[in-house]
Design a protein around this nucleic acid. Structure first.
Lengths: 335, 335
DNA sequence: TTAATTTGCAAAATCGATTGTGCAAATTTA
DNA sequence: TAAATTTGCACAATCGATTTTGCAAATTAA
């Protein structure tokens, strides 16, 4: 049980060498620095014996690098975001670095504060997920020369990796149409889109995909068939209730945007007789494993968290920060 | 856009003061160090003007503290663990520190490696969630004089905050008994426990609570009514299928241990006619919001992630590392 | 008015690593 | 054998903060 932390000076003393020799023996630069193999190996052995662990703060101070890689995201307890953190943590650790993940609760000030904080720790790179104010964040990172990449929510000033929401919505809509027992003719004015925020890029692309697919299929609809009522679970339930009352029943196809809205819808469904729900073909742009375990089929779109993270890392490592937008196709989960 | 980072020396020069004066003006120790209020305020203003952010590595090196607070946990994408990280992140940031959360995939070596890594960053405290090898981890922390606390999985060498599994299981069992339309007499040999690992403290305490409650209620059962078949979803589904075949139907009460097993059970349920499932009173020791949205009632036990974290922080701040075991009662979620 | 305090701050050492420079000793070349 | 080169390593500066020490100047006490 050591009490004082072992430093390179302790090793130097034991090895009868200088601290600089120890340093280069341990960080692998001994060949460049013309330390003999024999000396280097002896020092490495002693380091292991003495149970040496490097002081990352001293190292970081000198090298102006920390080995920390940061990620900010809206919240931890959300399937998609926690899939992202899981992948992120794996990728970072695979590269011998240390992940630092902080949630910023979709709060603009908190985002900026956390990034400032990260900068003062000299993190080596930053992954920004679902940013509220991408422009301000990117500017802040640039002023500190911090390599960064946006995930899920794009930024025009920096590389961005985003789910191909248009493609996903189109694919899901197509799938729902072909799964429904009704003909395209019969489906006119029977297809609804519920949830999300049309002012945000993600939802707006999804709505585009939905709309274009209906048009291509010759299925009639009006603006009233698209209800981007936000992400609140209870709100979505109420809107669905209203729709049900107006129509005197569920629509033939219902595409729900976001898992939270899906929860609200589910709550409403659980009050209806099962056969009524079964008659409605249901899709959800988001994924939850419980979705496929329900008594009626739910078709889901799952974002590829792992691929998003890998592509983002690729940008950090190879892309020199030029703004690009890379779309990742999500996958359809069929019950 | 600054290119070179501003340091206290830059501020010193601009203020016509020394670096040591700047340092104490900025960290609040100026009063103790007999710097005049006027000077301190002037320096603070200049610091804001120059957009100064402290270099945490230099600070950490000198103070042998980093302002980082670490947490290790088995995985990010799990409701309970991500609730814990969310609470943890909030508590840490509230104290002006920076949370670092790393998942170690229930892998003993990975746990040790990550903790070593944390130590080399001089983190100020460590929260260890669901450890695989608590003893080894605690010893490692102690050798580095790192304050630490165990959450969810206790350790006899350090303070531990754990859900009161006995209480939770007893409460859930009691609730299921009283919810069931059958009398206690009728329930004999009709109550089952499924899932979990009886060799782990958590499950074993839950089984104790289950068993004692049945005994108290005078409900007969044998060892065959307790099937701690692990945490695998498909395995749990198979075991349930087997039980169903043997008995020629579902039991009157089924207590499922862990959300993963619940998913397996749910998959099996979805193949049965609804009225058959409704006749079985179902409980789950774990929580998922989808659970209350099913077509049949599911009674759930939810661990108080936030309280666990708060109590753990309290230990770190006030407890000086003596081993204690604190139990936190979970809450019953009624559909 | 002189001695004793107090006030206000600068100087310098320190934390533990990295890295440019320089200098003997060993080796090669002429 | 002497000169030139290479090998192997130590020394010292440096990163940016914190903290102990010390010393004038200002203030108070005697």
């Amino acid at each position: 049980m050591k009490i004082q932390k072992i430093t390179i000076y302790d090793i130097a003393q034991r090895a009868g060498a200088s601290a600089s020799t120890v340093s280069s023996a341990l960080d692998g630069s001994w060949k460049k620095r013309r330390i003999s193999k024999k000396t280097a190996e002896r020092i490495q052995e002693i380091a292991v014996q003495m149970d040496f662990t490097i002081n990352r703060q001293a190292q970081g101070l000198r090298k102006a690098k920390s080995g920390l890689v940061g990620m900010i995201l809206p919240e931890h307890n959300n399937r998609f975001f926690s899939d992202l953190s899981q992948s992120f943590a794996g990728e970072v650790r695979q590269r011998g670095n240390c992940p630092a993940i902080i949630s910023t609760r979709r709060n603009e000030e908190e985002e900026l504060e956390v990034v400032s904080n990260f900068i003062s720790y000299a993190i080596d790179a930053l992954f920004i997920v679902g940013a509220t104010n991408p422009i301000a964040l990117s500017k802040l990172c640039k002023s500190a020369e911090l390599p960064h990449v946006f995930v899920d929510q794009p930024c025009e000033l920096a590389p961005s990796i985003v789910t191909d929401n248009y493609f996903g919505a189109a694919e899901l809509t197509n799938h729902l149409i072909s799964f429904s027992p009704k003909s395209n003719q019969e489906l006119s004015n029977q297809v609804y889109f519920l949830g999300g925020d049309a002012t945000l890029p993600a939802s707006s692309r999804r709505i585009d995909g939905f709309v274009d697919t209906l048009n291509n299929a010759g299925i009639g609809f009006t603006q009233s068939h698209i209800n981007a009522c936000g992400y609140d679970r209870d709100r979505a339930g109420k809107e669905l209730n209203k729709l049900y009352a107006q129509r005197g029943g569920l629509p033939s196809i219902l595409l729900i945007n976001s898992i939270d809205c899906f929860e609200g819808a589910l709550k409403f469904f659980s009050q209806l007789p099962e056969e009524e729900v079964t008659k409605c073909t249901i899709g959800c742009f988001d994924y939850d494993p419980f979705g496929i375990l329900l008594r009626f089929p739910v078709h889901m779109i799952r974002q590829r968290a792992n691929k998003l993270v890998k592509e983002a890392y690729d940008c950090i490592e190879n892309n020199s920060g030029e703004p690009i937008l890379k779309l990742i196709k999500p996958e359809l989960i069929i019950p």
